Amino acid sequence: MGFTLVVIIALFTLANQMVVQAADLTCIIGPHHKSSPSPEPDIRADTACSRYSSLSCCAANTSHSIDQQGEQELYNRHWDECGVLTPECERFMKAETCFFSCDPYVGQWKTLDNSTFFDLPICSSSCDKWFDACKDVSVCAQNWITDYKEDNITGRFYCVNKTCRTIAQRYQNGKGMCETIWGDEFRYVADSDNCLLIDFTGDNPNANVKKDISGAHSFELWQSCLSSLLAFLSYILLQF
């Protein structure tokens, strides 16, 4: 009976930790991310990342770099490998980079090593607007994580097999784009559901989005908790 009670308490504690983890405001570990979100009043109002000035995972200088050169200065990845982006596409690409670098509410979906995100539920309207803004622009990669490789000398990322195709040809629609371009980082979700916006005005609506820790998309979190539980049970058994 005593051992059963201990296990029940352990499960309750782990469940409580899962809720706390889902609610925490955290930033991923990256070269251009702060250790924790905080206000950035020096982010200018006319820049791409201005929507995050009240609370941000990126510093003002990171915001400035994105506004000036997109990912080029931050990650040495060039968007114009197949030609210049249209103004509207460039605007949305910068908005997406700001979302990745600055939004303080997406840490709930960070991977176990805290280096990036997994299964972010992106609102269908954001994915569709992104696709519509860039559908006629040509790019050289399908999956921008696996299809780019870093040059060991220059540090610049380039397409492994450079074949230029339009966004429309590569992804067909907003769902195809969101769920492919960054591997498994994004998931296309109906606006009526619990989802995140990439492009918005005013207060950050993502503050109201909480990770669903009870469904099929919480595998990594359950995996982590299960490992902790097994370690705990092993310790208890060793005491007998």
Rank of each mutant, 00 (worst) to 15 (best):
C58E: 02
G174P: 00
V139A: 06
T201Q: 12
E81A: 11
H32L: 04
E185C: 05
I198A: 02
S50P: 04
S38Y: 09
C225R: 15
P37K: 11
A10T: 08
L85H: 05
I66V: 10
V137N: 15
K211T: 09
D191Q: 11
Q172I: 12
L229A: 13
P87C: 14
P121T: 14
D24N: 09
L226N: 10
L196I: 03
D103K: 02
T201Y: 03
I145V: 12
Q21P: 01
L74T: 08
D151V: 10
A10W: 00
I9A: 12
G155P: 12
K210H: 14
L14P: 02
D67W: 09
A190Q: 04
K211H: 13
W144K: 01
A231L: 14
F118A: 05
F157A: 07
D147S: 13
D46Q: 13
H33R: 10
D193N: 13
R187S: 09
G30M: 03
L112R: 06
N16M: 03
S228Y: 01
K211W: 09
K162T: 07
I122T: 11
T180F: 05
I28M: 05
I9M: 06
C127M: 10
D119Q: 15
I167N: 11
E81N: 09
T146E: 10
W144Y: 03
C57T: 06
D103C: 01
T97C: 08
A15P: 00
V160A: 15
S124E: 15
E96C: 00
N206E: 05
C159I: 06
L55P: 04
F100K: 09
V6I: 15
S234W: 12
F131N: 04
R51L: 02
F131A: 07
K149N: 08
D103W: 01
H33S: 10
E150V: 15
A95M: 03
L112V: 08
H78Y: 13
Q169W: 01
W79L: 08
F3A: 04
A133H: 08
P31M: 09
L85M: 13
G107M: 06
N204W: 04
Q21V: 01
D151P: 11
I28C: 03
F219N: 02
S38N: 10
T97L: 14
Q68D: 11
N76F: 06
I167C: 12
A23M: 06
T4D: 07
C58F: 01
G176Q: 02
C164W: 05
D119A: 15
F12L: 14
R170T: 13
D184P: 02
V160Q: 15
W130H: 15
E40H: 00
F92Y: 15
S65D: 08
W109R: 11
D203H: 03
R51M: 09
A45L: 10
C127L: 10
